[in-house]
Amino acid sequence: MTYSGAVTVGGPAEVHELADLMISKAAVGPMNNNAYLLRCRTTDEQLLIDAANEPRTLLALIGDDGIKSVVTTHRHGDHWQALAEVVEATGATTYAGRHDAEGIPVPTDVLVDDGDTIKVGRVELTVRHLVGHTPGSIALIYDDPHGHPHVFTGDCLFPGGPGRTTRPEHFESLMSGLEAKVFVLPDETWIYPGHGNDTTLGAERPHLGEWHERGW
């Protein structure tokens, strides 16, 4: 089945099969959060991005092989409701941005900063710190050597614009970070957001000026 990135709460996960990495996307309620399970195709090691909610759903997605690590993209509560139960069941190492970890009630084992790398088997993800939606939000970039980049943006970038900000200076900070650290990637770059459907940078790039003008 061709991967579309369109998933629904209570529905099946969709799997994006890359040469070195398998990406399974599932939606959980009640806020239609996306959780992403990454599996290295060489070692079978797994990593979960955002244990958002519905621990049973996520543990079923993970399966008997377990996960080595779980990354929380930012401190907002809808992105870590299942974290404690997933960690207890799997013994996974927890990762989060240095400036958001204090807002996540499950202890963070590894604090990450801009430019750090997180490994899942032989696959490397590059951390990008984006300030604005929260102080310590992170995006994860997988620069596929066999194709185009893939970016897990949390709530920093969606189809149609950046994530929610509450002050003009926060909006400008988020936009500056996205333009300097994400939109430098090619148009083919696939974007996996924290809620809703996927997009590409090519689909969003023509609208950067509109976003600046509207201020959100």
Rank of each mutant, 00 (worst) to 15 (best):
R205Y: 05
P105E: 13
V15G: 09
P159A: 07
S137C: 05
L125N: 03
H99V: 02
L178N: 00
L157Y: 04
D50K: 05
K181T: 10
H129E: 09
G66R: 11
W211C: 06
K25G: 06
N32V: 06
A60L: 10
W80Y: 13
D113Q: 12
H74F: 11
H146T: 14
E188Y: 11
D109I: 00
S24F: 03
T72L: 04
G103Y: 14
R56Q: 11
P105N: 15
A52F: 00
D50H: 02
V15K: 07
G160V: 01
T42S: 08
E85P: 12
A60G: 07
D65M: 08
P168Y: 04
G196N: 06
I138K: 00
D155E: 03
G147V: 14
L125S: 02
H148E: 12
T42Q: 13
H74A: 09
T108Y: 08
G154V: 03
S137G: 12
V182K: 13
T73Y: 01
F171Y: 11
P168W: 07
N32R: 10
D116H: 09
I23E: 05
D100T: 03
L21W: 01
T200L: 00
T189K: 08
G63W: 12
H170Y: 14
A51M: 06
G132A: 05
G5P: 00
E54D: 15
G91D: 02
N32S: 14
L130A: 04
L58T: 05
L48R: 08
L37N: 02
C156E: 01
D114W: 03
F152V: 02
R122S: 15
A180P: 03
S69V: 02
L83N: 11
H74C: 11
R167F: 14
E172A: 15
L140N: 00
N197P: 03
D198I: 01
R214K: 15
K119C: 13
H79F: 15
A139Q: 06
V182Q: 07
G147F: 08
D100V: 02
D65N: 10
G160K: 03
A27D: 00
G11Q: 00
V87E: 11
E210N: 13
D155W: 01
D113M: 07
